[in-house]
Amino acid sequence: MNWHAIARNDLRSALNERGVWALFAGFILGFSGLAALLVLLGNPEFEGYLSTLAGGVGLLVPLAGIVLGYEAVIGERESGTAVLTLSMPHSRAGMIIGKLVGRTVLLTAVIAGAALITSAVILLTYPSFSLTRYVVFMLLAGVYGTVFLWVSAALSMALTTSRRVIATAFGTYIGLTLVWNPVISLTETILFRGRPTPSREPESWVTFLTFIGPDTSFSYLLSQALDIGTVPAVVADSSATFIVPSVAVLALAAWAVLPVIAGYISFRRSDL
């Protein structure tokens, strides 16, 4: 399987896309802009910077993942470049792996590049800086963004028009980041309306579903690793045994991989 040729070509092509450079500029502006803003407000603290950034990263990095992922396959199908690629000795699995690797490297490079530039700003203007904590933070952000990138790439494999892919990808983004937890608590409220709750501990399925939502899994890992960010009370106050980092990692991995498997099966079956 010759997927690295596809990954390399994908990266080469991405370097010519204005959108990718705009995204990179956006990240530099976001990361460094926040650092500069704290300096302007006086008394910049590295820990304060990380905590503030955590909120923004939770919304913006997944969005970047969605943006980089949604064209992965549908873009090639609609432009006809998939015809070029698949008329060579590439399998559809190879094409998907190549595209996923290419785009993931791209997202990682965008985050790493912006982080590197911002670290210079911080080193020059902040009294303290922890390289380890900074790197762990960016690493987690990268993993979180990759989850959304793979979800949107999976939609890009399964659906047959880019309009549908864009609509569902952004719908999924909003659903997973903003709507997931409210829907669970709303469901809980409807199901148990009027019934007095015997204990303060919520139903364990409520805790579980909240916990495995990618947003909560990510903020839980962030709080465990760096002690920053906010975790929903349902999870933070829970004594459930499944509230451990390994389950959060597993949940994120499942969010990334399961849609891709489904997307691949659909793409493999369909006519080009």
């Binding site: 896309e17 015809v83 008329s87 000795p89």
Partner: peptide, 17 residues
């Protein structure tokens, strides 16, 4: 396809390459 060289129909070019 390892044995083939193909000039297909309906292909497109990679943007900017």
């Amino acid at each position: 396809r390892e044995r083939m060289g193909v000039l297909p129909e309906g292909y497109g070019m990679y943007d900017g390459l």
